[in-house]
């Protein structure tokens, strides 16, 4: 009897792996979101800082609590829920009441993620589920915009931020009148475009000196942060590219048809949440298809739907619903776009 061989531990190949694990990828996404968050704080002040903290903390707490309640070990250290918190905060208006943000966070993580079984099992992007919840539940505050670069933004909260739960939000018109530059209408460039046919300069849009949700104003910055992730091979550039490309194509088409009625592609790409949505939310791995062809279909669908909703829907912003809808279609897209395998030359033959 050989004794030495008794204690041998057998491993199975592959034996050496050097690839970033889930937590490392997620952590890097958080890094990529930091400049965007910082810029949002710079533009809108401490209200946005409070919003970010509220969303992240509530999201983390929700996931932790649900894990514990269901007797699992907590999954908050995989960083994915941190991303959800940041993204949710970035899609909300800067002066969004904090308690509402907390409710939206609980809804997003609770319904959008944990209900399905946590990371990997969710059908839709949890941040967008939270945002959709907010859109439905808090219709007025979610469309109340405040100007960028208000003078007192680092010393004072936007009054609506500190609204007490279940009371009517503090009216902020007086405050707006005191801080807003002349001509501030409290409307985002998209709303201006849609409802008043006022177009905003693309340069302003790209660098982000316009009103909008906390983190969706500087298209350029979002793009740069996204490129970092692509460079680290931690994001699928194809999805973001497909979204933006098809959005540009669709809006370009309408622009050619009637340039007085429809805005041009550059405006469309740089305004509202399209860039943030395309780069950081459509690319949510869990909720997007996995097949090579499916990825393009999915991205294209988001780009197309966004523009259609923006131009013809009742809302001026369509990215959120476009992504949620495409998320819901992912399993179907997957199943109809299974890749052609090696060694099966003729499709269907066999």
């Amino acid at each position: 009897m050989s004794t030495a061989s008794q204690s041998v531990v057998l491993h199975t190949s592959p034996h050496l792996r050097h690839v970033p694990a889930v937590d490392e990828i997620m952590r890097n996404v958080v890094y990529a979101l930091i400049p965007i968050s910082a810029f949002a704080v710079y533009q809108f002040g401490i209200s946005v800082l409070a919003l970010l903290v509220t969303c992240v903390v509530t999201c983390l707490a929700t996931e932790h609590a649900i894990c514990r309640l269901s007797g699992r070990s907590s999954s908050v250290n995989d960083w994915s829920v941190t991303i959800t918190g940041i993204l949710l905060a970035l899609t909300l208006p800067p002066g969004f009441p904090l308690w509402m943000a907390a409710v939206a966070s609980i809804a997003g993580v609770g319904i959008g993620k944990m209900f399905f079984g946590g990371l990997g099992y969710n059908v839709m992007n949890p941040a967008l589920v939270g945002r959709a919840f907010a859109q439905a539940a808090f219709t007025a505050p979610i469309t109340t915009w405040t100007p960028v670069m208000a003078d007192n933004r680092f010393t004072e909260f936007i009054p609506s931020t500190l609204t007490i739960p279940f009371l009517r939000p503090v009216p902020i018109n007086d405050w707006l009148a005191s801080v807003a530059p002349d001509g501030f209408t409290g409307a985002t460039p998209l709303a201006l475009m849609k409802f008043e046919q006022i177009s905003t300069d693309s340069v302003q849009l790209a660098i982000g000196s316009t009103a909008g949700s906390a983190g969706e104003t500087s298209a350029l910055l979002i793009l740069i942060c996204g490129l970092y992730l692509v460079y680290r091979k931690m994001m699928d550039w194809k999805i973001a590219f497909a979204v933006l490309f098809v959005a540009a194509l669709t809006s370009g088409l309408f622009y050619l048809i009637d340039s007085t009625q429809y805005p041009g592609p550059i405006f469309m790409l740089c305004s509202g949440g399209l860039m943030l949505g395309a780069v950081f939310m459509a690319t949510d791995m869990v909720a997007s298809p996995v097949t090579p062809l499916g990825i393009w279909i999915y991205g294209g669908m988001i780009g197309f739907l966004t523009i259609i909703i923006r131009l013809f829907g009742g809302l001026n912003e369509g990215v959120m619903y476009a992504i949620l809808l495409a998320n819901a279609c992912s399993p179907l897209i997957n199943s109809v776009t299974q890749p052609r395998k090696y060694g099966y030359v003729k499709k269907g033959a066999k």
Partner: peptide, 14 residues
Amino acid sequence: GQHDQKSYPCISCA
């Protein structure tokens, strides 16, 4: 080091 790596559910990263 190889066997300490944590494992997660499939995140559909493709």
